[in-house]
Amino acid sequence: MTDATRATLTAVAARAGVSVATASRALRGRGEMAAETRARVLRAATELGYPPIGSSRGRPRRGTALMFDLVLGHFHDPYTEEITAGARTTASALGYDLVLTAERDDPDDDWPERIRSRGSAGVLTGLITPTSTQIAAMQRAGIPLVLMEPPSEASRPLPSIRTTDRDGGTAAAEHLIARGARRFVVIGGAPSYRYGRARVEGFASVLATAVPDAPLVRTSADWSAWDARRACTRALSELGGDGPVGVFACSDEMAAGAYRAVADAGLSIPRDVLVVGFDDVRGARWLHPSLTTIRQPIREMAATAVSLLARAAAGEDVAPTAIVMPTELVERGSTRTAR
């Protein structure tokens, strides 16, 4: 056997008594296998003179690909577009490609398996709480995982990027009171995710202290404009008392639904009803009047998450704690009134 024939992956697999796929995973340090099997493959590679990972041999070979996976349950809405833009820009600046990976409902097609097969350097999940099985799969593969605005707490401590949701709700209530609202509607999200609950709690706590006798109707919608329109229509019909109404919706999309409900009731924004949303996606400025909202720094949050992944991929020990980035109230036409 000549050197050229001997130094192939197939020859290494044959010498170690494993499949070519197993030999490849062992040499790349990927996948689950017995330590003895991995050692046998490495020994066979050394004996045959198989080039180490990273040497020039046809296509460049690396133990870990220079790419990060962004895992989302859906794409192409204003919020996820902001996440993608922030993550892509930072990944590119750090020398990584960004792969968009969908979380699918099919139990036979789990995203950790797809990510492990391509040897990604790290994973960012947006608005997703990975299961304990998914977290374990990433940890076994040595692939760092960072969460952005998880809907609930993960089963194991992980680095996460969040925003001041409760403070945002507090700011919305204080602003509506200062602008003359005397009756209130709050539209929470259903399912009641962690961040949605915090926004509603912050809003309600201010009302309970500042205007404890003010009429308040709590309602919820499925995070869509259509369902928020229905929920807000019912809330307005149930709201007693007199005076301007202040509506706080836990997302800008639901605030857009509240606009339609206000028009359906024959009322006007901001003359009769003042509206505050949450997120500050691009569409908030296009509503008429433009939407006052609680801005969360979505692109900056995604950029911070990718920077954490790059540090972890370089071997740095990243603490499994939450980084909380501040919200900011952005006043626009939906609360600008002469009252």
Rank of each mutant, 00 (worst) to 15 (best):
P112V: 07
R114P: 10
I115C: 14
R116M: 14
R118Y: 15
R118D: 09
G119H: 07
S120I: 09
A121W: 04
A121F: 12
L124Q: 01
L124K: 01
G126L: 01
G126T: 06
L127K: 01
I128S: 05
I128T: 08
I128C: 08
T129W: 08
T131G: 15
T131D: 13
T133M: 05
T133D: 15
Q134K: 02
I135Q: 03
A136S: 12
A136I: 00
A137H: 12
Q139Y: 07
Q139I: 04
R140P: 10
A141P: 14
A141F: 10
I143C: 05
I143Y: 08
I143N: 03
P144I: 01
P144S: 06
P144Q: 04
L145A: 10
V146I: 13
V146L: 06
V146R: 03
L147T: 11
M148K: 09
M148W: 02
E149W: 09
E149S: 13
P150D: 10
P150G: 07
P151C: 00
S152A: 14
S152C: 01
S152N: 09
E153T: 12
E153G: 08
S155L: 09
S155R: 06
R156F: 14
R156M: 14
P157W: 06
L158G: 05
P159T: 05
S160I: 02
S160Y: 02
I161M: 07
I161N: 02
R162L: 15
D165R: 00
D165F: 00
R166Q: 13
R166Y: 12
T170V: 15
E174L: 12
I177R: 00
A178M: 05
A178N: 03
R179P: 14
A181K: 10
R182K: 11
R182C: 11
R183W: 07
R183H: 08
F184S: 00
V185S: 05
V186Y: 05
V186T: 09
I187W: 03
G189D: 10
G189V: 11
P191V: 09
S192F: 07
S192N: 09
S192G: 12
Y193C: 00
R194Y: 08
R194F: 10
R194N: 05
Y195M: 07
Y195L: 11
G196Y: 04
G196A: 15
G196D: 05
R197I: 14
R199E: 06
V200R: 01
